[in-house]
């Protein structure tokens, strides 16, 4: 500050903002949603723990859709979020799903911009020509929950081996779910303590509209109700809820 006129002085100015910190992500998610609607693609955000059976569910989906509809089966595409490998995308390609990896490095979740960049940059990925675009999120029951990607629906894969109380331990994630797919149900006979009623009770405490489908992907048991659920989704439209 100068002694003559006080120039250089400063004041503390309070500025009210009241804006979502993730507003930029939500703006890009809205943009993704416009892309999906324009291409009539239904985008599904598939979340769950590492090893919960997300990739196996999608592989079984491709097989059963092909059996059910033959050459009229909807084309499938996928983006697989992975910290370090493209293993899941390779598996999905081998199952007939046009797939690319989003390598996140150290990031524990996908965000709307990563998905947007992948939609434009994934060389040769024909997601616009598919009926469903599965966005297989990074295996994690915490971080992916808070990022809108522009999807039509959120699906959580939960393996029977993970325990009935997982919804109570991760309420933020399960609150966002439109559907829980209980996977690896063919292992139930090896888990004498597993109590499906306890799991249903937990879901009813954290999901406003609890919905669960039981699937054994490798045995292709329960895949039909899952496909019926997909078929009932509004094509290329905004979020279910």
């Amino acid at each position: 500050m100068c002694d003559t006129c006080g120039c250089g002085d400063s004041s503390i100015v309070p500025v009210e903002i009241h804006e979502n910190i993730l507003a930029d992500n939500d703006r890009v998610a809205g943009h993704n949603r416009e892309h999906f609607a324009a291409a009539s693609v239904t985008a599904i955000n598939v979340m769950g723990s590492p090893g919960s059976g997300k990739t196996a569910l999608l592989e079984a989906t491709a097989r059963v859709l092909s059996c059910r509809y033959g050459k009229d089966a909807p084309r499938l595409s996928a983006l697989s979020g992975d910290l370090a490998t493209d293993n899941d995308a390779v598996r999905l390609c081998n199952a007939g799903i046009d797939s690319r990896s989003i390598t996140t490095g150290s990031a524990c979740h996908l965000d709307a911009r990563m998905v947007h960049d992948a939609l434009h940059d994934s060389s040769g990925l024909n997601w616009q020509g598919s009926g469903y675009l599965f966005i297989e999120n990074v295996g994690n029951l915490v971080c992916p929950a808070i990022y809108d990607l522009g999807q039509t629906a959120n699906v959580i894969c939960l393996a029977v081996t993970e325990g009935e109380d997982k919804p109570l331990k991760y309420p933020v994630m399960f609150r966002k779910a439109d559907l829980v797919v209980l996977t690896k149900t063919d292992l139930e006979s090896h888990l004498p303590g597993f109590d499906i009623a306890e799991l249903e009770d937990a879901l009813a405490r954290v999901m406003p509209a609890p919905r669960m489908i039981r699937v054994a992907a490798l045995a292709e048991d329960g895949v039909d109700p899952w496909i019926d659920w997909l078929d009932a989704l509004p094509s290329g439209a905004g979020a279910v809820r």
């Binding site: 120039c7 400063s10 100015v13 009210e16 903002i17 009241h18 609150r175 406003p208």
Partner: peptide, 20 residues
Amino acid sequence: FDLVRGDEIILDKIDMEVPD
């Protein structure tokens, strides 16, 4: 039930130093 509040991640206010 609908969530009435509890999922906010909001920037409310900034106190900043502005030269006179």
